[in-house]
Every structure is written in C-alpha cells, then in structure tokens.
Design a protein around this nucleic acid. Structure first.
Lengths: 168, 168
DNA sequence: CCAATGTCAGGTTGACTGATATGC
DNA sequence: CGCATATCAGTCTACCTGACATTG
C-alpha cells in the first residue's frame, strides 16, 4: 500500500478552483471526481473485508445476486444484465467462483443454449460470513448518517436513471 | 459493448429489500452500491469522450494535474500522492504519457533522486481539446442540477474526509 | 437462415508486491 | 547507516473485441 499521509487540504476543492479559472463545468467536474474517488474508497474498504474469504467485489456481488434469487440459480446472461458486466466477464467470474467451489454450472431445464450458475452450500456459507465482515465496516459508509446515506442513494439513483440503468 | 437494455425496475432498490430481509446496514449497502455504479457510469462517459485522444481517465487526470501546477512539472512522488495512486502505477502512467509525447521526464534541480514529469506543448494542447470534449458531456453529470451536483460533492467530501483523504 | 447464448483467444489497463539502484 | 525516490520484473483482476460452436 502507498504511504499516503493525508493532504492538508481538499485536493478536489483545489482542482475545482484551478478548473474554474480556465474552463466551464466546475461543479460537474468536482462532483464527478468526488464520486470516482468515493467509489475507490468504498471498493478498497469492501475488498479489505473480503480478502480473508478470497473474494473480490465483483465475485461477491455475483454470489449475493444468486442468494437473492428464488432458486439460488440464474442464467449467466441474466447475471450479466443485472450486474452490468460483459458476457465474457461473466464467464471469467463464474469460472473463478466455480473453481472455489462457491458455484456450479448446471443445465437450463428447457433452453439448452443457456447455462445456470447455482450457488453451493459453501457459497451460501461464505456469503453469510463475508457479509458479516462487510456490515461490520458499514461498507465504509459509517462516516455518514443514515439520513445522509439515503441522500446519496437518492442522488445516485437520479444519475443512474438519467443514464438508462433502469426505467422506472 | 453489452446489449444492456434498461431493467424495468431499480436493481439497487430491489437488492436493498432483499438485503434488509436478512442483514443489517441496508442503507449503507444501497449507498455504497449506488456510488460504485455511479462511478462506473461517470468513468465510462469520460473515457468515451477521451477515446479520440487516446487518453484514459487516470492519464488525463495526471495531465490536468500538471497543467494546474505552477511550472507545468511535478515530482512523480508528489503526483502519486495527489492522484492517490501507487508509485509503480505512476511510473507506468508517465511511461505511457511520455511515449505519447505529452510529458517529458526531467531532472530535479537539487535532489537527484527525484524526477519531474513536465508537460509538453502537445500535452497542453491535448488537455485543452480533451477537456472541451469532457465538458461537452458534463462528465455525465448533466442529469443533475448544479445544486444537486454540489450536494453530491458535499456528501462525498464528508466521506473522503472520514477516510483520511485530507485533513482540513 | 437468423438470433441468442456462452466460451475462447488475445490484447489492454491499472494496481499490487518485492527487489533493486541511486542519492540524501 | 537508515530513509527516500523511482524503476523493474512478475502477478492479478477485470475489461474489451472478435471469432466460434451450439441451440432455438
């Protein structure tokens, strides 16, 4: 890990001042940069909690999606849609989860083209334990009040909606 | 690119309901997932705008940092601190920018251990053009009002502060 | 025949670790 | 001497593109 002692000032704030001396869209730039940086923080925090279980964020998300499904199994294509990841990435992630014994590939009952990923008992166990670890650090969001967390969710929802993530 | 037609419902909202049936911290989970997804959207939007210039987000950030510096040059170590990236990644990114002719490595005037990255005239030109392209799409933030953008920046600032990004 | 599904090969980026050379 | 700076080799995850086999 890099040394990274905290800077004595907010680097995004400073960048915004420089930006507005030259270009338009300072507010958008500051918001965008803040979101990207916040995401790095959250991912780092979650992956740190996941490390003992040898899971990454994307692989954990895939397992949770399976736990939430009625039958504990979903077609690979559907998983890609939900998790917003490329078909080739789905193959890769399921490969790894299968090698770890957290998932099995099974045949679709009617459509022989599609393959289902089914979570195993080991998979369910690791999700329970990993989730405990993640909740224990509040996914890095503990520095915000629940009210603020919900404000974040609302603002990000509007952004996602505006970019066609969903259509409600 | 994946097909990704929009889902007819908010997947994070649905995940939150499932989550709260089983575990604590639903608000934190929804906020964290929203931030990560929003970041993916912003990065995709910005990288799309940067593609014609053969720049990625991290490389563009590095160039902008140099433009904002007084002398158009900074020690590699200092760049890593500011951009929150690993020393080895700094070497890698400056390698690429140098190969593209946007940056040159020059000696530090007094400390012979440190190396400065200095932006070239070509580098300055590409930043100007790339920034126009990025501002034209408001970094993907155009779906939020300026008031909302500032609310985002404020909330993310609190998160970053709470995680030691800076100390003001 | 065309569309959909998943896999595979091959390439890119960025990040990390650990070792190393150089200079303060 | 210890510490700082940057590089290098090697590894890893995830992403993308394009081609392909199988099936509907």
């Amino acid at each position: 890990m890099a040394a990274r002692q905290p800077l004595p000032f907010d680097p995004i704030d400073e960048a915004r001042r420089h930006w507005e001396d030259r270009w338009d869209g300072g507010a958008a730039m500051a918001a965008a940069t803040s979101i990207v940086r916040a995401s790095q923080i959250v991912v780092a925090k979650v992956e740190e909690a996941l490390r003992p279980f040898e899971l990454t964020f994307p692989r954990y998300e895939a397992l949770v999606l399976l736990v939430f499904s009625r039958k504990g199994a979903l077609p690979l294509g559907k998983m890609g849609e939900r998790l917003q990841i490329h078909p080739a990435s789905v193959t890769n992630i399921i490969d790894r989860l299968e090698a770890q014994g957290f998932v099995t590939r099974i045949a679709h009952p009617t459509d022989r083209r599609t393959i289902l990923a089914e979570i195993t008992d080991d998979g369910r166990r690791v999700v329970e334990e990993a989730t405990k670890a993640i909740v224990a650090v509040s996914l890095g969001l503990d520095v915000l009040s629940e009210r603020e967390q919900n404000a974040v969710t609302r603002l990000m929802r509007k952004l996602r909606l505006g970019h066609g993530d969903f259509s409600a």
